[in-house]
Amino acid sequence: MGKKLMEIRDLKTYFQTKNALIRAVDGIDLDVEEGQIVCIVGESGSGKSVTSLSIMRLLPGPKGRITSGEVRFEGKDLSKLSEKEMDAVRGDRISMIFQEPMTALNPVMKVGKQIEEVLLRHRKVTKSEAKSKAIETLRFVGVPRAEHIVNEYPHQLSGGMRQRVMIAMAMVCEPRLLIADEPTTALDVTIQIQVLELMKKMRDERKTSIILITHDLGVVAEMADHVVVMYAGQVVESTGADAIFEKPMHPYTQALLASIPSLEEDKEVLYSIPGTVPSAGAFPKGCRFADRCSSAQPSCTEEMPELREVLPEHFVRCALVPNGGAA
C-alpha cells in the first residue's frame, strides 16, 4: 500500500437555500494514495462534483459551505486554511480540470499566456522561462506545433486540443494531486481515449495522484485503481477497481452495472432502476436507496446503514450485506 496523500474524513458540505438545507455532501470518507487514480462515480445530484469543489474550496459562498469534517493534505487540513494559504495550494499542489474547456479557458487570452500565468503566480520565474516551460508542457500533453499554439486563442483549437491545454495548465507546476471533473464527457470517443491515455502518462511519469469524477463506468474501468460510488451525498461503496466490477456488493452498484448496455455482451433487456434519486433537500431517514432497491427490507427505511468494511479494503453502506460479503 502506498503512502497516503490525502485523507478526507466525514466531510459535510451543505447549501442553505431559502426553503431548505441541501445536504449535497453528507459525511464522506476518501483516501488518495500517492500515484493512485481514484474514481468517484455517481449520477447527477450524487454530490461528486460538490466533493471536488469542497476539496478545492471553490464552493459558492456564503450559501454553500463545509459544515464539518476535514480534508488532510500534506499535513494540513485544507478546510481550515485561510483564503491566502489556500491560494498557494490551488494550481500548485492541487489543480483541477473541468468538463467544458471552452468555459474554463479565458477566450480573450492566448493559451500560452494562460499557462504562463500559473507559473508566474506560483514560481519565481522570468517571463521567458515561463514561456519555454509552457511550450515544454504543451509538448508533454501532445499538442503538435506547441511553439505556434501558445500564440493562439482557445476558439482556434478543437475540443480535444482545448482539453489538452487545460491539462497543461493544470500540470505546469507539477501538482501532487489532479482533480478532473468529467474531463472527457464533452469529447468524442476517439479523442476521449487520447485524453485518458494522457492522464495515465501523467500518473506514470510524474507520479501525480488523480481524483477522476465521472458518471461513465467505462471510463472508470479504464482508469481506476480505487473506486468510490456515491449516491445521494454519501459513499455507498468504496473498494479496489477490480472488486467493483467483479463483485459489486451494494445493490445500487449492482443495479448501475446491470443497467448499462455493453459492447461485448448482448443483454436482451436492460435492468432499470425504478424511480429517481431523492432530492437533496428531503432525504429519507433510512437508507437513501431503499425506495429504489429491489432487495430492500422494511428495516431499510428505518435506520441509516453505516459504511462498513465487509471484506478487507471493501466498504459497503448496506445493512443487508453481511460481513465477509456474499449477499
Partner: peptide, 22 residues
Amino acid sequence: LLSAAPEPKRIERRERIILQGD
C-alpha cells in the same frame, strides 16, 4: 471507434487503436 470505446469491465482488451489528431 470500437476499440476506443471504454467498456465497463476489467479485462485485458484486444490491442487498442488510438487515432492521431482530430
